[in-house]
């Protein structure tokens, strides 16, 4: 789903995403997860509004740099 900031999340996209992720979805899980995944994707889509050209990811496990964690 990367690169799909505004794509609609439906039952079928959830099932397909879970299948690709190797996540078994037992009884009731689609109903439980669908609204949460829709909210999550809506939140994450806001990060696509930012201009991140020339911005490298923050590194993890690099302590000691003044003023930042990465």
């Amino acid at each position: 789903m990367a690169g799909r900031p505004s794509g609609e999340i439906t039952e079928s996209t959830l099932v397909e995403t879970a299948r690709l992720a190797g996540l078994p979805l037992g009884p009731g899980r689609v109903e439980a997860l669908l609204p949460q995944l829709q909210t999550l994707r809506q939140e994450l889509s806001r990060l696509h509004e930012l201009d991140l050209r020339d911005i490298e990811p923050a590194g993890i496990f690099i302590a000691g740099r003044e003023g930042q964690n990465g």
Binding site: M1, A2, G3, L14, T17, A18, A21, G22, L23, L25, R29, L33, Q36, L37, L40, L44, L47, H48, L50, L52, I55, E56, P57, A58, I60, E66, G67, Q68, N69, G70
Partner: peptide, 27 residues
């Protein structure tokens, strides 16, 4: 944890790039 399984590498790295922006702003 189930929703975490649906995150992609690019989702994660985008967030870490935004994190750098936030850290630079804070500094």
């Amino acid at each position: 944890l189930e929703l975490g399984k649906t995150m992609t590498a690019t989702d994660y790295l985008r967030a870490q790039r935004v994190r750098r922006l936030i850290c630079e702003e804070y500094a």
